[in-house]
Design a protein around this nucleic acid. Structure first.
Lengths: 197, 197
DNA sequence: GTCTATACTGAGATAGAC
DNA sequence: GTCTATCTCAGTATAGAC
């Protein structure tokens, strides 16, 4: 039922727009009443994100199970182990992503989800012994790396998600290792491996 | 008027709770009608964040005006130049922060604001010549550093905001420079300057 | 400033699974 | 019988249209 409601919502939000769609219409398309919709989802936005709790669970599990590495190494390892997406999944996720980016209310909810995910990763790192004041920074960096890779992947990159993720982590390493100088003009003799694409 | 509405909202949201407060009550306490409230703010949440656009503007201006440094150096310099807060401001901001953290709806809006701020910083970096795929990572890291410092500051730390901010940036440097090893057990001979507090 | 659509909530009734 | 899912009905408050 949740799946039916989610499919109905994505369809209507996409073709008619989020704010020109009522919850009653979503429910009707799924074959239930509005009240039933609200038994399954707390509000009009949450349908679109159904199933993301599972993603968060597997992510924290991957962090917990990663071998001993540097802090960012743990995240790189954990996120890479989840990067086995197929092309069919990509189409569905790209559709979801289009609906979300087209709708301020859904973007807001997505931002909240990202914060929540970051806190979950911070907690998972803490359980491995990483102090919070470092873990929160690592988690925020790691999640942004993941977001960027996902953005590029959904954008239609010809490269695999795993490759995009690895590149993004490499850029993060660059960032603090001192390689990423500011531009204009090219800094003091240091080569700038900034542009890869 | 916006200030009166904001003060009224923060007072009622704090003492009675956000969802037990109606916009009509907020308006009444500020001495206007509900309609007038919605002339100044687009929804029930936005009052709490009145004035944050100015913060974003001064932040992007500081990024634009920072000297040539490493990527994170630019953000460190820019954010530090804004770190002149007094104790009176701290009390007011701590009160706002308490109301926000107590209310899911307001936390969600805050998350959206953070995303927006991060994008603004990314844009400001791009105008300096930083390619987006690096700038977005740097901005996300920098904003998280800023958030952590602010959190500690509002939490009642005896140290100055500038000092907390500097420490947080130092931790970020540690993160990728290889200093931040995972814990349990202590890694191969490398000293671990993890715990400072 | 008035009016209305609609997101959301609560209580109670019904129906089917077990 | 209990438990769970759904529907019906009656509201309130936000937000937007006029």
């Amino acid at each position: 039922m949740r799946g039916r409601l989610r499919a109905a919502a994505l369809e209507l939000y996409a073709e008619r727009g989020y704010d020109r769609t009522t919850t009653a219409e979503v429910a009707a398309l799924a074959g239930v009443t509005e009240r039933t919709y609200f038994r399954h989802f707390p509000d009009k936005r949450e349908v679109v994100f159904d199933g993301e709790a599972a993603l968060q669970a597997s992510m924290t599990a991957a962090v917990a199970g990663a071998p001993e590495l540097s802090l960012l190494g743990v995240l790189r390892h954990a996120f890479s182990s989840l990067a086995s997406h197929g092309e069919d999944e990509r189409d569905a996720q790209a559709h979801q992503h289009r609906v979300i980016t087209a709708t301020p209310e859904l973007r807001e909810r997505a931002a909240a989800k990202t914060v929540h995910l970051t806190e979950a990763v911070t907690d998972a790192l803490e359980r491995r012994g990483t102090p919070r004041h470092l873990g929160s920074l690592a988690a925020a960096c790691g999640i942004e790396v993941l977001s960027r890779a996902r953005r590029e992947w959904l954008d239609g990159s010809s490269r695999s998600f795993a490759a995009l993720l690895s590149d993004a982590f490499d850029d993060l390493d660059l960032l603090v290792r001192g390689g990423a100088q500011d531009a204009l003009p090219p800094a003091q003799g240091v080569e700038q491996p900034l542009h890869r694409h």
